[in-house]
Nucleic acid binder design. Structure first.
Lengths: 345, 345
DNA sequence: CCCGGGAGTTGAAGCGCTTCAACGAGGTGT
DNA sequence: ACACCTCGTTGAAGCGCTTCAACTCCCGGG
C-alpha cells in the first residue's frame, strides 16, 4: 500500500506538502502541486481512510439508519437510499447502511466510535427511540419523517396532511361527495409512524370543511385484504364515488377488483393514489396521483445534514445552521383515474 | 470523547490490558477483566473506529456495491441489502453502501483507501467492469450473480437455469405442451445481466428435451407492455396454455388481463412465477412459484466473504478458502395458479 | 538599507489504537 | 536445586495522516 510519505519522497517534497495539496488548505505553488499530483497518479496513491479519520477526527461517512420494520414499502425506501448515497458522494462522503436489529444502540455505537460524521434517520416513529440520542449528540442528524415533538430537530418529509387535503380538493372539484381512504396496513398505524396518519387527517379535515363524508380503512397489500376492504366500504357506504389509496401494493388489486365488480374507473369510481410517479404511470388505468418524491427527500436530507456538518467543522458554531422542518409541498398530477362524479344515483 | 487511555487509568491497568480485554487476544484474569469492563461501562467508552482501523489495518466494514441501473427490481435488491447488513453485524462488521455513478472507480477507491475489508458486488453483468479489480485486489470479494468467466471468483446466486427447467417440468407434468415466458424488460437482456438469460435458457433446454414448444418475450412492467406481450403471444401461438413469468411488476397486470380476456387461471391458462415468496402469496390468484431467496443470498454472500476475510486475517493463507460458485437450488411451491392443461382444443 | 509581511514549504507533535517483545511471578519436571 | 514453562501484565513502537508553529524567501515600503 502506497503511503503519503512515499508520495512525498517520490515528488521530492515533505509529507505536509502532499497533505496540503490533497486538502487544499494551504496555498501550494503550481509547479509543486503538479509534481505531487503526478507522483500520486504514478504511484496509484489512495489516502488511508483510517489514518485520515484518526488525524482529522472526521470520517467522511454518513450513517443511514433504516429500521425496516415489516410493512414498509421497500421501493420508496430504496429510492431514498440511492438518492442519499448519490448525493453523499457529491459531498465526498460515503454512506453506512444501518438496519433494524440493533435499534438505537446502532446509533450510539456509530456516533460514539466516530465511524460516522452525521446521521440520516428513516422510518421515524412519532415517539422514536432514537430521538433522545439525536438531541444529545453533537453530530448533525436529519430525520426523514416527522416525530410528534420536533423541537431542535431537522426533518424532511412530504407534507402528507397537505397531500390528503389536495386529494380531497381534487375529488370535490369533480363533484364527489362520498369518499373513502384505502390506507396502509393496520400495523403501520399501530406503530404510529406519522405519515400514514397525517394523510388521513388531512383528508378528514378537508372533507369536514367541505361537508363531504369520508371513510378510512387500513388495508395490507394482499389481494384478499383489498377485496375485503372494498367490500366493507361499499357495504357501509354504497354511495362512495371517490377513493384515495395510500398503499402501493393495494393499487393494482384495487383496480382489478373494481373492474371485476363492474365499477368503471373513472366513470363510476374515481381513484387518487399517493405513490411514486413511476407506479402511477404504469398501472392498468393511469392514476391521478400525488407523487412521493423519494429522490428529492433523500437529496434534501443529505444537503441539510452536510450543511450542519460543514458548519460544525469550520466555524464550529453549529447553531449557525438552525434546525428546520422541511415539508415538501405535494403536487397532484391528473391522469385517467379520476373524472366527474356520476350525476345520477 | 472517552479514550482507551482514560479507561486504563480509571481501571488502574495499562492501555494494552484494556485493548486485550476488548479483543480477547490474550488471556486476562477474571478480576482484571471485570474491573476493566466496569470502567468501560461507567465511562461510556466506545473505541475509536479510525484509530482502530489505522492500528489494525482492518476497518470492519464490508462494501456493498449495487450499481442499480434502471429496470432492476428494487425490492429484491433491498431485501438482499438488508440481509447483508444484518448478517454483517453478526460478524461485527458494518456495511458501506456504494451505488452506481462512480462505477468501478468506487471499488478502487474503497479498497485502495482501506475503507472496506471486503466487498460484495450485486447486479453483476456477464462482462462486468469491476471484475479485473476484483481479481487483482487482495481483499476478499463475493459476487451476487454470475459473470461469464468465473475463474477465481466466489459467486452466489439462485440457479436460474435449474429454475427454468423446474418450471417446465411442473407444467409438463400437468400436460401442458405449449408454453411462453414473459420475461424481464428488454433492457435487462441487452445489458447481459446473466440471470434473465439463464432462466430462459433453462426453460428452452427442458422444453426442447420434452418436445414442448416455447415462446419467449421480454416485457417491461407496465400494464400496456404486458397487454402487448400477451396479445402477441396468443396471436402467434393461440394454443399456449402455460406461462412462466419472471418479472414481478408484470404479474398482477398479467393476471388482470387474463381475467379480462376470459381466460381462467388455472383452468385455461397455468401461470408459474419466479419471484419472492411474499409476492407469490399475495396476488389475486395465489401463484405457483419458484422463490427468489433474496435473504438467503445476502446472508450466504456475507458468510462466504467473511470466511475469506478471516482466513487472510488470521492464517494469512487466503487460498485456504478456495473460490467457489454457490448456486442455490430452486424450489417450486405449488399454489392456485397452475392446473392440468385443458384437454380439449 | 532595513524592516514587515505574505507566500510557500517543512519538521514534528500528536490522533487513539494494536501488538510485539519483555518481564515478574508462580508453577512443573528432573 | 535448577532450568524451563505458562500466565498475566506492561511499555513502547508504530499505523498514516493532519495541522500547528516555525522557518525561509522574496517583495515592497519607508
Amino acid at each position: 500500500m502506497v503511503t503519503l510519505a512515499e508520495v512525498a519522497r517520490h515528488a521530492g517534497v515533505s509529507a505536509s506538502t502532499v497533505s496540503y495539496v490533497l486538502s487544499g488548505k494551504r496555498t501550494i505553488s503550481a509547479p509543486t502541486r503538479e509534481r505531487v499530483e503526478r507522483s500520486i497518479r504514478e504511484l496509484g496513491y489512495h489516502p488511508n481512510a483510517g489514518a485520515r479519520a484518526l488525524a482529522s477526527s472526521r470520517s467522511n461517512i454518513i450513517a443511514l439508519m433504516m429500521p425496516l420494520r415489516t410493512d414498509m414499502y421497500l421501493p420508496v425506501m430504496m429510492e431514498i437510499a440511492i438518492a442519499v448515497a448519490t448525493t453523499a458522494r457529491e459531498h465526498a462522503h460515503d454512506v453506512l447502511l444501518l438496519t433494524g436489529q440493533e435499534g438505537p444502540e446502532a446509533a450510539r455505537r456509530v456516533v460514539g466510535s466516530g465511524l460516522a460524521d452525521a446521521m440520516i434517520l428513516m422510518d421515524v416513529e412519532l415517539e422514536d427511540q432514537r430521538l433522545p440520542l439525536v438531541r444529545v449528540t453533537p453530530r448533525p442528524a436529519v430525520l426523514i419523517g416527522l416525530p410528534s415533538d420536533t423541537t431542535g430537530l431537522t426533518c424532511v418529509d412530504l407534507d402528507f396532511a397537505a397531500t390528503g387535503r389536495l386529494c380531497v380538493d381534487h375529488l370535490a372539484k369533480l363533484g364527489h361527495r362520498d369518499i373513502a381512504v384505502v390506507g396502509e396496513a393496520a400495523a403501520v398505524y399501530e406503530r404510529r409512524t406519522g405519515f400514514a396518519e397525517r394523510t388521513v387527517r388531512g383528508v378528514r379535515e378537508r372533507a369536514d370543511e367541505l361537508g363531504m363524508r369520508m371513510l378510512h380503512r387500513p388495508c395490507d397489500g394482499s389481494y384478499e385484504s383489498v377485496a375485503g376492504t372494498l367490500a366493507r366500504i361499499f357495504d357501509e357506504r354504497p354511495e362512495t364515488t371517490g377513493i384515495v389509496v395510500q398503499n402501493e401494493a393495494a393499487i393494482e388489486p384495487l383496480l382489478g377488483l373494481l373492474r371485476q365488480q363492474g365499477r368503471a374507473v373513472p366513470e363510476d369510481i374515481s381513484v387518487v393514489a399517493v405513490c411514486p410517479e413511476q407506479v402511477a404511470a404504469g398501472t392498468s388505468v393511469a392514476l391521478t396521483s400525488v407523487a412521493i418524491p423519494a429522490q428529492e427527500m433523500g437529496r434534501l436530507a443529505v444537503e441539510l445534514v452536510m450543511a450542519r456538518a460543514r458548519a460544525s467543522a469550520e466555524g464550529g458554531d453549529p447553531s449557525s445552521v438552525p434546525p428546520r422542518i422541511e415539508l415538501l409541498p405535494p403536487a397532484l398530477t391528473v391522469r385517467a383515474s379520476t373524472g366527474p362524479a356520476p350525476a345520477a344515483r
